[in-house]
Design a binder for these strands. Structure first.
Lengths: 235, 235, 235, 235
DNA sequence: AATGAATGAGGATTCATTCAT
DNA sequence: GATGAATGAATCCTCATTCAT
């Protein structure tokens, strides 16, 4: 419960306070990842008044949309790093795709609530802007990938990334039941429908990307495509 | 708002009332697919009392879990039909995978609420049983598929199906924003992150399955694998 | 804080519980007549749960609309008694008009909040029904009056009653400042704009009714119209 | 949304800014006449800061009390003009009483909120001063009227004016339901309790004034009292 | 004088579920 | 079996006002 005594007059101060709210919301959500924390809790744990929260965000859900966007940005940053690394291969990119999600479980926890809860309560205008920014990020990463693969058009790369995201999101939801029932379901018979996310994700992505290259042809260097190997490992 | 005054004495009567509740819940959910209808609404529109609903289901969410299970069963029934058809090929199976989802949008609408809302409020024991039955269904379908592909082990087929499900679930969520914002987001710039589900799903699955065969080798007859063609069409 | 243990199954029981809520609301409003009591307070002091209040009334304001209607009914009941009394004269009717308001200050306290607060938050349909019933009550009283005055048409009587109501409502608001400032304003210089309601009301009504008879002619017996005398008294 | 950056150094500047606030408040209230606009809205639309509003008015309601006072002043100015006109008669005065109210619906919209909302939140001292000034205005007008009627004492004239005000205020509230329900109530059966204000007001005032002259005798010239005629017209 | 960030009290209503009848 | 009256937890956001800058 931090106490930020002075008022945020400057743009920088404001940005700091905004971050304070975001950080508090992030922590509280981590504490109980199945529901969004209440506005009151966020205010209290931030050491500010409830009303103040609404000076920085128009609704509670907007806070978590902002949090989600931070994750998207960080995620794609990692992805682009992997793509534009010195001599990347598909394994490394797939690894980048999975690693951030694993190390920041909050990301997909939020993403899973996104369509059912968060987007419901966010102003359409805000949401539209959010999605436009998302498109840009994805487009940029896709272009990087296209360049790496020596492709003229980036559209199929964008598709590949979106499908990878969809696959990961689906796998996450399949493999992460609500915490309160997680124990009960920790049943060996259920590994099929409740796989260990990290392994399954890598393997599934490898398969998907393998399909991509199979269809797109061998235009790109064989050195890039290591996805077959990865698949082999888990077999 | 039906009025069924008589009591459900026999087992059949009970089953009928249970179905009545399920059907009512189904209709109401179709009417506003972004939230589960209230218990009161379900009771009213069924022509029964609120308390009666709880004689047949322990919680509201259990109703929708049952509904969801019906969908899973119907879906896998279709899938198995496609697999065990006279001379199936991958396109037909992929088509089966997609067709039911498209014709019964309620299915994935529910599935999307499953982890975030439904499973949260269902008794662990019930949920466990539900999931076990699910495993069986998937296993059976997987075995069918393995047999069709002339494989000794069905596990990778089960994985393939699960991954297909995950992919479809992710794509559904990506391509179906909450109704109230759907119009605002009907923006050509957003097609990347809001693709037309039917096309994208078929294409993505083809890719995934292509990857599968690529990795698993050509043990199965070449006639089965038409997925390359399908991909080619949309290219 | 009454405790009504059993459930209201019968219509009579329900009516009793409804009355309980109304009575509690009435008392609480008397305690602080400048604002409507909260729904929580009404529930607590009734010894019932908040939700129960909403089983009997769709909104808080509806409670007070019901209370207001009771007053209208009682008021017009008194008025009609005065009109149809053995040998009524105008003074007695005017007295009836004023007496109830004086003895039940809550009536006009509510009436004064009616247009600004209560009607704002009541469902249009409910409000319409309420007003229709009001029209009927007024019409009936008007017909009584017309009969007493030996008039063929009751419309001008209805008008007279409505104008009497309007006058009384206006005078009430003028003479009853919010409690918290009543003391400060208890100033001899302000008697003009803050007259003693009872006296002023009788006098003003006498004047209005005097104008009525002056315009409508002497069709009715001179014995009825004593309003001149009344006026003379306060002069 | 004007932008007046400079400070209000001189008394004139201050007065100008006060007027700016009043005008903005007036416009905003016209836009949604059932509730007082928020302090934030007034500030924004005035192009000044919220805090600045409170340099000129101690509370939001004080703004509207000031607005109301302006209306009272303008109204009585019109009334006195009518009274002191060359050869006024009662019809003309009654017309003056009604005309301003009709052309400035904001006046009585505010007056109707006065006792229930505005006076509640105004400092007692301010309110007292306000009311004293009101008394003076009314007194002056009353004296004008007494003079015109050749009466020695103005008190009964003051009473007549106050009663006229009360009647008009009551009629206004009766005939002006909250906007959001106005349509629903636009029902021919309700004309009795929802008369057209302008017609009803003139007629009712004529009746009241008729009663006045009936009681006060014919001291004043017959030429003044045309109210009988007016009534006849609408009969 | 002016600003505008911060405050925090304040309140109606919904709805899943239970249990007395 | 059926009912439906009763429960009461749960929570967001607005907005008048203040006061540090």
């Amino acid at each position: 419960m931090l106490k930020s005594a002075k008022r945020a007059r400057s743009a920088e101060d404001k940005s700091l306070k905004r971050d304070l709210i975001l950080n508090t919301a992030s922590q509280l959500f981590d504490d109980s990842p199945d529901t969004l924390p209440t506005a009151a809790a966020i205010a209290n744990h931030s050491g500010i008044a409830k009303g103040t929260v609404y000076l920085y965000f128009k609704s509670k859900e907007e806070i978590f949309l902002a949090l989600l966007e931070q994750h998207y940005q960080a995620w794609f940053s990692d992805i682009r790093s992997a793509i534009t690394a010195d001599k990347p291969d598909s394994d490394e990119i797939i690894n980048a795709l999975c690693h951030y999600i694993e190390s920041q479980p909050q990301f997909f926890q939020l993403a899973s609530l996104s369509s059912s809860i968060i987007e419901q309560n966010v102003d359409s205008k805000i949401l539209l802007e959010f999605k436009k920014r998302l498109v840009e990020i994805i487009t940029s990463a896709s272009k990087d990938l296209a360049q790496r693969l020596d492709l003229d058009e980036y559209e199929t790369c964008a598709q590949l990334l979106m499908r990878s995201y969809a696959m990961l999101l689906g796998l996450w939801q399949v493999s992460h039941p609500p915490e309160k029932v997680a124990k009960t379901l920790d049943n060996p018979n259920l590994t099929l429908i409740q796989p260990e996310f990290g392994l399954e994700a890598r393997d599934a992505l490898a398969q998907l990307w393998h399909g991509y290259v199979g269809q797109k042809g061998a235009k790109s260097s064989g050195r890039f495509w290591k996805i077959g190997n990865l698949f082999a490992k888990t077999e």
